[in-house]
Design a binder for these strands. Structure first.
Length: 493
DNA sequence: CTGGGGATGGGGCCC
DNA sequence: GGGGCCCCATCCCCA
């Protein structure tokens, strides 16, 4: 037994290491690409400045009245600017000859300095060149994989994002950038700036559906259409605990934070940027695992493919993460720390509108499943999800989860694609996958995913047996027991 | 093996 | 429409 366990652990570790190596390779490639882009940008800038200078001299010679304007522009380009318009320039950090990943990019805007954070999620076929995360750094960030903060702009005004006016070119490599500037003026910059590219395919259930949000019916970042009805994959994150007893379960770190409870559905018209965070989480190597998970769900409803390839993540701020993967990871797997930290950085910002259930899958590292809420339970989340999928899939194969025979089931579980008629149901259902058990018994600390289950459980403590047999007087805690009892013992009566 | 009982997931109804 | 609740089915454990 022990030998088997050790062998299993060794295999798991090997898988982790392999995946980590792949991931690191992708990171490296992405960084290289990012550096190249930065260099290119710098060259363009220099060339433009030179051209402007030339033009300025020419204008000075002909129209002295233009000097002021051009000087102003020039100054702006150097980062001294006082522009109020759309012209912005990057200021190359002093002392560096080339752009590096960790260099801040200062966006001079209106005399203030803003941080420029852009993440572009490009189509999945970029995988051919290595599905990497090309991260653009901003001030205060030390390492892209430790980039802690993704703010979806939930609080306050909705995030303003401007898509690149030029329509995304057709495949194979569509790219769209949405730039947000977190700074004094919260202005929106178009992405003539550098972009951070994240390759991702979310919920690609296998078909070769490409990543045109419009085609997918996402609008800007919305919900994909589905044949016959609106299918809304629901991303859900609910509160951790309702009746917290302060137990030490590793996954209750978010329990006391009221803001930890939120649920979001991908709404075509109101798609918060949190979605992007979500999608970002599952990019890269996760796809490997995701595909296996989602393909299970796909068995139910072939053709109901949800693909989100191009989404944008807003990165800003310096808010520290509230949940550290360190506390959830055993030692000996620190190789994946960066990986996990990055993931956590995307997840733990409480302002993120949506919360990726994928984080519960973690990477396809079974060891990491200990991060799941079900850690304290008899089986890990990995098994739980798969088993749950199997279970949930059964009824869906019948009439079809979205066939709408009785009631239109337009809310799709993003884990298994199972359809539900209302949002609460799918949120409730998704706890099967996430392992969330927000309802805790105050008597025995047992937890439940549903309130009614907790209520039922409480009868164990109270000894409540409200259902009495009218024939023999025997009492039962649930009606079903009474019915079974009566069928067996009093069926002839 | 069987029955009782706890846990859990889905569907439906009511407010 | 959402939340709460109930009913039902199923799985599992245990005596």
């Amino acid at each position: 037994m022990e030998v088997l366990a050790n062998a299993a652990v060794a295999e798991i570790c090997k898988l982790v290491d392999d995946d980590y190596a792949v991931f690191r390779l992708e990171i490296t490639q992405s960084r290289k690409e990012n550096r190249a882009l930065r260099r290119k940008l710098l060259e363009l800038k220099v060339a433009r400045e030179r051209a402007e200078r030339t033009m300025r001299e020419r204008v000075v010679a002909s129209r002295p009245s233009s000097v002021k304007i051009l000087d102003r522009y020039r100054g702006m380009a150097r980062g001294e600017g006082h522009t109020t318009g759309g012209q912005r320039s990057f200021v190359k950090p002093a002392g560096h000859n080339t752009w590096r990943d960790d260099q801040p990019i200062t966006v001079d805007e209106g005399g203030g300095t803003s941080n420029q954070h852009v993440i572009v999620i490009e189509s999945a076929d970029a995988e051919a060149t290595g599905p990497g995360v090309k991260q653009e750094r901003s001030e205060g960030e030390e390492d892209p994989w430790h980039s802690r903060d993704i703010q979806a702009g939930v609080a306050g005004a909705p995030p303003v994002a401007t898509e690149d006016p030029t329509p995304a070119p057709a495949l194979p490599r569509t790219r769209r950038s949405i730039t947000e500037v977190s700074g004094t003026q919260n202005a929106v910059l178009k992405s003539e700036t550098k972009t951070l590219t994240v390759t991702h395919r979310l919920l690609n259930t296998g078909s070769d559906h490409r990543s045109d949000p419009e085609r997918l019916g996402l609008g800007r970042l919305g919900c994909p259409p589905a044949p016959g009805s609106e299918f809304l994959p629901v991303f859900h994150q609910s509160q951790r605990m309702v009746h917290s007893r302060g137990d030490s379960d590793v996954l209750d770190t978010g329990g006391d934070d009221p803001s930890y409870s939120y649920a979001t559905e991908m709404d075509p018209g109101n798609m918060p940027l949190g979605l992007e965070t979500q999608t970002d989480l599952s990019r890269g190597d996760w796809n490997q695992y995701n595909s296996s998970v989602y393909s299970e769900g796909r068995l139910d409803k072939e053709g109901e493919v949800i693909v989100v390839d191009e989404v944008t993540v807003k990165v800003e701020g310096d808010a520290p993460p509230t949940w550290n993967a360190d506390s959830h990871l055993g030692d000996g797997h620190s190789q994946g720390r960066d990986f996990l930290d990055y993931r956590e950085s995307l997840e733990t910002d409480l302002n993120i509108t949506t919360h990726s259930p994928l984080h519960l899958f973690g990477d396809h590292d079974p060891v990491s499943t200990s991060m799941g809420p079900s850690d304290s339970h008899s089986h890990n989340l990995f098994d739980q999800v798969l088993n749950s999928n199997d279970r949930a899939r059964v009824p869906a194969q019948g009439v079809g989860a979205t066939s709408g025979n009785s009631k239109e089931k337009r809310f799709l579980c993003m884990f298994c694609n199972k359809g539900f008629s209302c949002l609460q149901k799918v949120e409730r259902h998704q706890r099967v996958h996430t392992g969330e058990k927000p309802y805790s018994c105050t008597q025995c600390e047992k937890r439940f995913s549903r309130q009614d289950h907790l209520k039922m459980h409480l009868k164990v403590h109270t000894g409540e047996r409200p259902f009495a047999c009218t024939h023999c007087g025997k009492r039962f805690s649930e009606r079903r027991y009474l019915r079974i009892h009566q069928q067996k013992n009093h069926s002839t009566l």
